[in-house]
Amino acid sequence: MPDKQAVRPGYNFAFLDEQTKKEIRRRILKAVAVPGYQVPFASRELPIAQGWGTGGLQLTLALVGPGDVVKVIDQGSDDVVNAVNIRRLLLQTTGVKTTEDTGAATLIQTRHRIPEERLREEQALVFQVPYPEPLRRVEPSEVKTREMHAEADYSRLWVFLYEDIVRWREITIGAQYPVLVNGRYVMDPSPIPRWDIPKLHMAANLNLFGAGREKRIYAVPPYTRVEPLAFEDHQFRVESFDGKHCAVCGSTASFLDELIDDHTGARRHTCSDVAYCAKRHQLLSENGPGAGRQTGNETGGGA
């Protein structure tokens, strides 16, 4: 049940007015109906600046209900400023429960990561998207890119990948790797690392993408094919950590951040997904080594 005390008076539930939320939900339905297709919507003014996750936030605000448990992460962390501010806004305009536990959340807003813990059918993941157009790197004109999508004409993006391979022997795109959704639309998965791309493929949960400044909504519905663009002889590969493990929880099957100690200059790696790391750490200290045995269930990308 919502926490009435937390709610500031004078605001509609979830900040946006009901008509706006309805309108956004209609756009979401269309996005779900045409997986990977960018649905234009009238992006609203919010009490945070554009470029700080307003697209994702509008989706979250349109979807959140009193019974929801919300989690907000930024680059895998619940505690950085962007995530904290958005969580606070949600709390103050809805009073819904928030959590850091991925498994406990019903609605997760994220920037640049997909949680390591595999999501379930009843969960929805909302992405903050800076640049929704995957073809922008080869075509500056919006009119042309729309035409290209309409005709499924992706040859120029393919040429871009081809030339990347010719020049560097591999595709150098790190984050924001273009994917083909349901065999039809090429989609920008937002700047998630390649590590997270396989998690989108046939995911049980609903994935929603919102670009506030660019005014676009798109979706990958549950159990939808999501294939990274790759050549028969140059397969898609996720980041490799070369047997490194998390300094906190010992994980070898999660996306790792490299940390350099300012004083000693020593390098160490920790899980990028902080909540996941904490959960494993707790399990380990409660039950001893072996309790945190990784089933391989958590990640799509193999180590």
């Binding site: 004409d153 393919w158 040429v159 391979i165 010719v166 028969e232």
Partner: peptide
């Protein structure tokens, strides 16, 4: 031609448009 794509890339564009997704064979 796309003058800012390589000669090979230009030829590849036509092949890729016809769904020929193998860098080695394209080259």
């Amino acid at each position: 031609l796309r003058l800012d794509c390589t000669a090979g890339g230009n030829i590849a564009e036509k092949l890729l448009a016809a769904e020929f997704f193998h860098v080695g064979r394209i080259r």
